[in-house]
């Protein structure tokens, strides 16, 4: 790094160097139950990171820590720290709205709002202050194009979102999320309710999106994790057992438990 840069580093440089998300000895409790145990993880930028593990291992919980969606659950307590762009998101004066705008989430079951396709995509920009119709229309078109929905839906923007088939609903949820211009996309088993063909198409879309976004995907489909991700973590009973390059984790796991899981001995 040059002298000038270290003396006065532009913000963008810092962002490239720090991980998008970092958890440090993170534990999470639901009441007295410890759902996450001393998790340390660093999510790299502009890559797809997969979290795998059997049901109830804490992978969704970990994902929901990253944009504080766990706050909606009563009796949740956190120890340790979680940094997004180097800032602790659990500090007392943390701006939750800004955090969730930056770190967005796609859910397991497509959950478009029971309003029209257009209103769904325009929802995010509208609540964040975009008022002009021309701007909203432009945002809707851009974000429907980004998920490959525009050509199918451009003449049907007023139909209820719930009348779409599941794959289009999930793409619509992605468009709705992209419209708030996040940096990080958290995906909680986004394909689990879709058929294999729709799943393959969503995965293609993920490859497209990782050029511009940091993606963390939770899945219990190991093939999917192997196909789409460059980093992967294996979780078991609240522990992040192993985290590293996807290829290494699947071909040459360091931990016996990872080995047992990916070879199908349990799970």
């Amino acid at each position: 790094m040059s002298q000038a840069a270290s003396a006065d580093p532009p913000a963008a440089d810092v962002r490239v160097q720090t991980p998008a998300i970092e958890a440090r000895s993170l534990s999470l409790f639901y009441g007295s139950f410890r759902a996450l145990k001393d998790v340390d993880v660093a999510v790299p930028r502009r890559e797809i990171t997969a979290l795998i593990g059997p049901s109830g291992c804490g992978k969704s919980t970990l994902l929901r820590v990253f944009n504080r969606m766990n706050d909606l659950v009563r009796g949740v307590r956190i120890e340790g720290s979680v940094l997004v762009d180097g800032r602790d998101i659990y500090r007392p004066d943390a701006d939750l709205i800004a955090l969730r705008k930056r770190v967005g989430m796609v859910f397991q079951r497509p959950n478009p709002f029971p309003i029209s396709v257009f209103q769904n995509v325009a929802y995010g920009p509208a609540i964040h202050g975009m008022a002009s119709n021309a701007e909203l229309e432009e945002a809707v078109e851009r974000n429907l194009r980004a998920t490959g929905l525009w050509d199918d839906l451009k003449d049907r923007l007023r139909v209820p979102a719930l009348s779409l088939p599941p794959e289009q609903q999930q793409r619509l949820c992605l468009s709705r999320l992209l419209a708030v211009e996040p940096d990080v996309l958290l995906m909680d088993e986004p394909c689990s309710t879709l058929d294999p063909i729709a799943t393959a198409r969503i995965e293609e879309l993920l490859f497209e999106l990782k050029k511009n976004y940091t993606i963390v995907i939770v899945t219990h489909n190991m093939q999917q994790a192997a196909r789409v991700s460059s980093r992967a973590g294996f979780m078991l009973l609240g522990d992040l057992v192993e985290f590293g390059a996807t290829e290494g984790l699947f071909t040459n796991p360091r931990d016996q438990r990872t080995q047992d899981y990916i070879t199908g001995r349990f799970g």
Binding site: N67, I97, R100, K101, F107, N111, F113, G124, I127, H128
Partner: peptide
């Protein structure tokens, strides 16, 4: 109204009031 609508809205950075007014009430 399904909790998933509220979560979807909150996860987009909406306030509870925006969520109630623009998502839950219409639903």
């Amino acid at each position: 109204v399904p909790q998933s609508y509220r979560e979807g809205s909150i996860a987009l950075g909406a306030t509870p009031w925006q969520t109630a007014w623009r998502v839950v009430l219409p639903a």
